[in-house]
Each structure stands twice: as C-alpha cells, then as structure tokens.
C-alpha cells in the first residue's frame, strides 16, 4: 500500500483533506478577532483549557503534516525522474499554475508554518510584541488580541502572512479537487463542477485569512 502509486496518493489525499479541515477550523477560530478582544481571548482561553487534548491534537497534526510532506517530496522526485528530458517546446492545455507548483507552494507553506509557530506560539520572533500577551487582559486571560493587532500593524509581518496565504490559495486551488479525484468519487460530469467548487473554496479560505491582517492594517480592528 505505501509503496504503490495510488496508495501513496491516497495518503496525500487523506492527510491533505485533514489539513484542509484544520485550516478551516483554524480560520473560524481566528475570525473571532472580529468580535474584538473578548472574542479571540476567550477562544484562546478555551483552547488552553483543553490541556493535554491540545497536545494530542498537536501530535496528530504534526504526523499528518509529516506524512503529507514526506510522500509529497517522494512522489515529486519520482515524477521528475520519470520525465528526465524536457521538451524544447511543451504546451500544457489542461493543467493549472497551482497544479504545476504544488511542491513549491507546499514547501513555502511549511516554511511559513515554522515562522508562524516561532511568531505566535513560541514568541521567538518579535518578542517585544509577544510580551504584550503576558499582561493579562481585564478578565485575567492572555491577551492574544493585543499581540495580533500589534503584530499585524507592522506592514512587514502582514505582508509575510498575506504572501503565505497566496501560496495556500495556489496549493488548494489544485489540491481540493485533486483529492476528490484521488478518492475516486468524481466522474466525467462532476469533475468540472468540483474544479470550480474547489477553486471557490480556496478563494474563500484565502480571503478569510487575509481579511485579518488587512482589517488591522486599515485600522478597522484597533486596540
């Protein structure tokens, strides 16, 4: 199964689907910032209150990521080896930019995820901002709201996040329809519809995430 062509594709599709699920839940959670400090700080407080469950969840997520990345790189290397000599001229007709750049957007997402953890979870980058988490808010909760607002008020940080979301947009614009084809649930009629739905879903996720730094930069969300 884990040596076969389709078997490994199924692992990619399954882990990819779970990661998409995580991304959507993460987005819904983050959007509580639009309610204000109360919204997102309460959300963060709930997450922290889960205690060991958070760690179980993190380990599962890390394994999904690890499997997805491992097979993604392995399959990409095999596929390159299967087409060692390039054409002098090649016209692609059906495929998309997103499909052709899966490994690059994937690696960019990985790099971003590492930075993201250093930034908001481990408070390694921009410690002067992360320090704002510690003065607890009026209800004694960590002040995630202030940390996010102060971070995204820095144009550079917002730009990095927005750029990363562009790579996620590209990755999902191909990935979401691809996973349904890999699971074999599509046929000749439903494939073109799914391609449109998947692209729309990728755009919704992109707009959702990017709306947070953009709203902060525009001053719509303020301390």
């Amino acid at each position: 199964m884990l040596q076969s062509s389709i078997g490994r594709k199924l692992v990619m599709a399954t882990t990819g689907m779970c990661l998409v699920g995580f991304v959507i839940v993460h987005l819904l959670g983050n959007s509580s910032i639009f309610i204000g400090a109360d919204g997102i700080n309460a959300y963060a407080e709930h997450l922290h209150a889960l205690g060991p469950i958070v760690w179980i969840f993190r380990i599962i997520l890390l394994s999904l990521f690890g499997l997805h990345i491992f097979f993604g790189i392995q399959l990409t290397l095999e596929n390159r080896a299967a087409r060692p000599i390039d054409y002098n001229q090649k016209k692609n007709i059906r495929t998309s930019f997103g499909a052709e750049t899966m490994i690059y957007t994937g690696l960019a997402i990985l790099a971003f995820a590492v930075y993201h953890l250093f930034h908001f979870t481990m408070h390694v980058t921009n410690p002067e901002i992360s320090a704002s988490v510690l003065p607890l808010d009026a209800l004694g909760r960590s002040d995630v709201f202030t940390m996010m607002v102060l971070s995204f008020q820095k144009f550079f940080i917002s730009a990095v996040y927005a750029g990363a979301m562009v790579t996620l947009l590209l990755h999902l614009s191909h990935g979401v329809q691809s996973l349904f084809q890999t699971f074999g649930v599509l046929n000749g009629n439903t494939l073109p519809i799914m391609e449109k739905i998947a692209r729309a879903a990728a755009i919704v996720i992109f707009v959702g995430f990017v709306s947070i730094p953009v709203s902060i930069l525009l001053g719509l969300i303020n301390i």
Binding site: K9, E78, N79, N92, M102, H174, S178
Partner: peptide, 8 residues
C-alpha cells in the same frame, strides 16, 4: 511517474 491530476 505517478498521477497528480494535471489532466494533460
């Protein structure tokens, strides 16, 4: 190689 659903 392996199929990655380019549909080419």
């Amino acid at each position: 190689g392996n199929c990655t659903n380019h549909y080419e």
